[in-house]
C-alpha cells in the first residue's frame, strides 16, 4: 500500500502541505528535546551531554526497523522509497565543513532555525551566517561545481555497496547504537557536569 505519495494514494499535490506539517512536528519535537540550545548540542563534542547522539540514533534505528517490518508485512514497497544519491567527495568535504561549523557555532542548519525561532541570539547569528554561506556558494557555484558533483556513485545504499543483507545491517547498527548509549553514559559520568 505504501509509499503513499508515489503510489498516488495521497495525490502528489499534497506533497508540500504534508512536508510543512511534518516540518512543524519535527521542529516542535526538536525544540522539546532541547535542541534549541547550542550548549546542549555541542555537549556531544565535549562529552557532557549526549542527547543529540541518543535522539538521532534512536530515530534512525526505530525508522529502519519499522520500515523493514512494514516491508515484510507488505505495507510498503521498499523499491519505491526515495534514496538520496551519493556524491562521495562532496559528502566528505561537506561533512568536514559541517562538523567544524557544528562545534564552532553550536548548531546545525535545522537547529539554528529552531534557536532563532524561540529568540536565541546565537541562533539568529548562525542563521544569518547560513544565509551568507548560501549566497556565496550560489554566486560562486561555477567554482564549486566540480566539487559539488564529485564522486557521484548513484542511488546506492551501504548494504548494496557491501552486498550484505539490509536486515543484518540494521541488527548490527542497533547493537552499535545500544553500545554507544552505554559507553556515552560511562563517559558522561567521568566528565565534569556543566550547568546550562
Amino acid at each position: 500500500m505504501g509509499p503513499l505519495i508515489p503510489l498516488d494514494i495521497i495525490p502528489e499535490q499534497w506533497n508540500n502541505v504534508i512536508a510543512v506539517i511534518i516540518g512543524m512536528a519535527f521542529g516542535f519535537i526538536m525544540e522539546g528535546s532541547g535542541f534549541s540550545s547550542s550548549r546542549k548540542i555541542v555537549g556531544l563534542f565535549y562529552g557532557y551531554d549526549f542527547t543529540v547522539l541518543r535522539v538521532f540514533f534512536t530515530a534512525t534505528v526505530t525508522t529502519a526497523i519499522g520500515l523493514y517490518y512494514f516491508s515484510y508485512l507488505g505495507w510498503i514497497d521498499m523499491s519505491l522509497v526515495y534514496i538520496h544519491p551519493t556524491y562521495l567527495t562532496a559528502a566528505i568535504v561537506g561533512g568536514l565543513i559541517m562538523g567544524v561549523g557544528f562545534v564552532a557555532g553550536g548548531y546545525c542548519p535545522g537547529t539554528s532555525l529552531i534557536g532563532a525561532a524561540i529568540g536565541r541570539i546565537d541562533g539568529m547569528v548562525f542563521t544569518l551566517g547560513l544565509m551568507i554561506g548560501i549566497f556565496f556558494f550560489s554566486e560562486g557555484f561555477s567554482i564549486f561545481e566540480g566539487l559539488y558533483n564529485g564522486g557521484f556513485m548513484g542511488y546506492i545504499t551501504i548494504t548494496e555497496y557491501f552486498n550484505i543483507s539490509s536486515q543484518l545491517f540494521i541488527f548490527l547498527f542497533t547493537v552499535v547504537a545500544v553500545a554507544a548509549f552505554y559507553f556515552t553514559t560511562l563517559i558522561r559520568r567521568r566528565v565534569k557536569q556543566v550547568n546550562y
Binding site: I65, Y72, G74, D77, S165, F171, F173, V178, F181
Partner: peptide, 23 residues
C-alpha cells in the same frame, strides 16, 4: 533503559530471522 535497549536489540534481531518475501 536496560529493558528498552534489550527490546530494541530483540526486535532488530527478529528482523534478521524473518524470511525473505516477494510481494
Amino acid at each position: 533503559y536496560i529493558i528498552f535497549a534489550s527490546l530494541l536489540i530483540l526486535v532488530a534481531f527478529g528482523l534478521v530471522l524473518l524470511p525473505d518475501t516477494e510481494h
